[in-house]
């Protein structure tokens, strides 16, 4: 029995280590696939759909005088009828399904991972400044757009955002998170010309920044955790 215990002890230890490593890999890396795939966004919204997107559709329909019901985010009979009427009045196939063309005509601008400037901007704002006050989020969007207009940087929103090493959120993957409504609105404001920074091209967090070059720049204003400079 003693002999058996002697053999069993190192094996159990070995198994424990293997188990811990295995669990660690499962939890903290994607070496071991979880087997769960995210559902892809549907091609459109129709009867039975719910959520924020449906609220936006209802709002747009109400603004245009097609919908008189509640803005409740539930795609029911009233919403379907309003969509059909709107489609028919706008030369679209009257099927009650809100697809890309109906969204465009409605002026609904949300996207499920599209690549428009507003979407890119909302993602960089969310990735870089989601904990900041609203003005601080608009300011980050404004810096991206100031760079687009500046001769020192690429000339498109995607060029500026994806410039190698330019934004931590792109390097560490936070850029790929789904932005919330606040970040989306901040992106819209920035695209509409809101610039609380007055033309700044850089920002950094003075508590964490280490680049001497960045720290040597004159700070023109500070909002929350970010110092903005030219």
């Amino acid at each position: 029995m003693k002999k058996a215990k002697k053999i069993l002890k190192p094996i159990l230890c070995f198994l424990l280590v293997v188990g811990v490593v295995f669990c660690g890999l499962y939890m903290f890396t994607d070496v071991i696939p979880s087997g769960i795939e995210e559902a892809e966004a549907g091609a459109g919204y129709s009867s039975g759909s719910t959520g924020e997107a449906v609220k936006q559709i209802q709002t747009a329909l109400k603004n245009k005088g097609y919908y008189t019901g509640k803005i409740d985010g539930i795609f029911g009979k009233l919403t379907t009828a309003a969509v059909k009427k709107f489609q028919s009045d706008n030369g679209l196939k009257s099927d009650g399904i809100v697809g890309a063309e109906t969204m465009r005509k409605l002026g609904v601008t949300f996207s499920a991972g599209g690549n428009s400037d507003a979407d890119l901007l909302a993602r960089i704002i969310y990735g870089e400044a989601r904990g900041e006050e609203y003005i601080g989020q608009v300011a980050v969007g404004a810096v991206v757009l100031n760079r687009v207009a500046s001769p020192l940087f690429p000339n498109t929103v995607s060029g500026v955002i994806y410039q190698a090493g330019a934004f931590d959120a792109v390097s560490d993957g936070q850029f790929n998170m789904t932005p919330n409504e606040t970040a989306k609105r901040a992106a819209k404001d920035a695209l509409n010309g809101w610039d609380p920074t007055g033309g700044c091209l850089y920002y950094y967090n003075p508590k964490t920044a280490t680049s001497k070059w960045m720290l040597s720049k004159t700070v023109y204003l500070s909002i929350g955790n970010h110092s903005f400079c030219l």
Binding site: L152, F153, P154, N155, T156, G159, V160, Y162, Q163, A164, G165, A166, W213
Partner: peptide, 15 residues
Amino acid sequence: VVSCLSRMTAEEETE
């Protein structure tokens, strides 16, 4: 050229 260059590097000198 600007677009290609910015995909490769974003150092101070690149600006």
